[in-house]
Design a protein around this nucleic acid. Structure first.
Length: 253
DNA sequence: ATGCCTCAGCTCCTGAGA
């Protein structure tokens, strides 16, 4: 079974690329983030024509998440139970016996801002809920745009970016605490090239210079980690015309 | 370097992203 996550930075703009990618990479589940559209504008039929079911949790202009899957997703949850949120950031469903959580973590903007405080509260809320969800669903995958680097290996210039957003100790502590619940970074289960990133700034030719960050993850529960076969970042779509700034991450279980 | 690029929208500038 293959699962993938991709922050598409506007599904309206990226839909043809997503359909092309699914045709070339027929994964069983694809979690999308940053749809930037409302539920009524979600292209269910386009995915249906491609052989996929889809469930979405949209929002105008910002955020918005979806699960695209070959078989129906059941027991849907939108956002984080127990954490009040105006934004559409999380969609959860069960596909082929695996509990799949697709998430768009807050950006946080800059330490010391209200948005950073919101990010920290959101992370605590997510962790409290995932803890209970893991008890109910030992076979669980949490994937999406985490907007946090694990350590220096995920950062193109760790010295210049030390302590900046995505690289603060506070964010990294929360990511580590989330993983301590029993979630494993699938990408690091396997040997990977140095300077492997999942996001590159549109500005200053970031992709060409490989000035990026690894902030998109697939975390697998312990029960699934034993049978995880591969995890890659697919840089091909970043070479498209009008690409998303993020690349898909694909895991094979 | 309050810049660089891209997207959405109360759209020809601004806010947000990361």
């Amino acid at each position: 079974m293959k699962l993938a996550t991709w922050n598409v930075n506007s599904l309206s703009v990226r839909l043809p690329q997503v359909l092309d990618w699914l045709a070339a990479n027929p994964v069983d589940v694809l979690a999308l983030q940053e749809l930037k559209l409302t539920d009524d504008k979600f292209p269910h039929q386009a995915f249906k024509d491609a052989g996929y079911e889809s469930v979405c949790f949209g929002q105008k202009t910002y955020n918005g998440v979806a699960l695209i899957s070959k078989t129906d997703a059941s027991d849907l949850i939108k956002n984080i139970p127990g954490f009040d949120d105006e934004m559409a950031r999380v969609i959860t469903g069960t596909v082929d016996g695996i509990r799949v959580v697709g998430a768009y973590f807050p950006n946080g903007q800059e330490p010391g801002t209200e948005k950073f405080e919101y990010k920290m509260e959101w992370l605590k809320g997510l962790r409290a809920w995932i803890k209970t969800e893991l008890v109910k669903h030992p076979n669980l995958v949490l994937m999406g745009d985490f907007n946090i680097t694990t350590d220096d290996a995920d950062v193109w210039d760790p010295i210049a970016l030390e302590g900046t957003i995505h690289c603060t100790d506070e964010e990294r502590y929360e990511l580590a605490a989330l993983k301590a619940l029993g979630l494993i970074d699938a990408y690091r289960l396997f040997p990977q090239a140095a300077k492997s990133f999942s996001w590159w700034d549109y500005r200053n030719a970031g992709f060409r210079k490989n000035q990026g960050l690894r902030i998109d993850y697939v975390l697998v529960s312990k029960a699934l980690s034993n049978q995880t076969k591969a995890c890659i970042i697919d840089k091909a779509p970043r070479k498209n015309e009008r690409p998303s700034d993020h690349a898909p991450v694909v895991v094979e279980i």
